[in-house]
Design a protein around this nucleic acid. Structure first.
Lengths: 182, 182
DNA sequence: CAGTCATTTCAGAAATTTCTGAAATTGAGA
DNA sequence: TCTCAATTTCAGAAATTTCTGAAATGACTG
């Protein structure tokens, strides 16, 4: 599998960005390659397309599967596993956000609740700050859960509206208690 | 500086989460400690609160400053630097999102535009996928830019409305072209 | 079952990141 | 200018993560 120039550059970029995105170089590269391939690829093709070891490819694919970011396919008369990324970019985005939330936010939310459950310990400032942080995370993840439920079409419309939404919001009456606290 | 039990647990959690958040343990711990402290702390206090080396604290603070996540303060007659996190959680959140966007998204957007500038190379599928990805990122960052401009009060109101926004959106007429493509 | 192909596992090698202690730098006050 | 406290820098040590090659596992086929 000789990569085109375009593929090559894209793949290398994703490899470099990997560390900032919390994945390793190989995982980033595998994902990039699959993303640009119209046909599903097997581990062999990925391995020599990227020039990494077969075992590294195997581990990378396993990681991508744990992120739900690739789909496995099979062809009749061929017992190798083939992989693709979902066709729909919105689906990919939803998965990415959901998985990052699960790994980066949920454990902390759980921890904050635990700390609060242990009850007041006399450190008023810290306790207040923790409660405040938990509330903020709950507000944001609650909003995310709501957006998650919207069909893509409405989501796109909302994003396109952008700041015009501010006007719509003002026309609605509702509690604003979260901003003001004594 | 002996940490309270609550501080200790919170600090250790942020240290552990650090790697998932793209920062190292010490940076996570320093931030956590400052977040829970009502008073600004100097490097000395942080160092012995966390039990790390003085130089590690120095590098951690430098990193937090590069993220704009801490403020430096001074007291009359004391030439040591004191640090705090911004009081307002919304401000912290805005900074965090802005910085992550800058590090994790902007470089890729730039790269995608570069690849497109180089013009068609004959790999139709890859070219289409790259264009699609760029459009998606532009839509989302554009929306983010709009939200960024909203005052906190309106943002909270919007988040509280949540899925009720869907109804408001439907009442607005507007192009929906982005979802359907041939 | 034996043989073959595909994939996974895993111990250790290689690479990278984090952390430390010592030395260098900075800058305020004498 | 000199002194000294505070901070930063940096080379190498320590820890962690990534990657490889070899062996193990699984699973279809004749």
């Amino acid at each position: 599998m000789k990569l085109t120039n375009l593929q090559q550059e894209f793949v290398l970029h994703f490899g470099e960005m990997g560390s900032r995105w919390g994945i390793n170089r190989t995982v980033g590269q595998i994902y990039a390659l699959l993303f640009l391939s119209s046909e599903p690829l097997n581990a062999e093709q990925i391995t020599d397309g990227l020039g990494v070891s077969r075992s590294n490819t195997s581990m990378g694919l396993k990681e991508l599967q744990s992120w739900n970011l690739v789909r496995m396919k099979h062809f009749p008369g061929d017992r190798r596993d083939y992989f693709t990324t979902p066709e729909d970019l919105w689906e990919i985005t939803r998965i990415l956000i959901a998985e990052r939330k699960k790994r980066e936010i949920d454990p902390t939310l759980t921890k904050l609740r635990e700390l609060e459950m242990e009850g007041p310990k006399g450190d008023d400032y810290a306790e207040a700050r923790i409660a405040e942080l938990r509330e903020m995370i709950e507000l944001m993840t609650g909003f995310y859960d709501d957006m998650e439920k919207l069909e893509t079409e409405r989501l796109v419309k909302m994003m396109t509206l952008g700041s015009k939404i501010a006007g719509l919001i003002d026309k609605t009456s509702g509690a604003l208690s979260l901003t003001k606290r004594k």
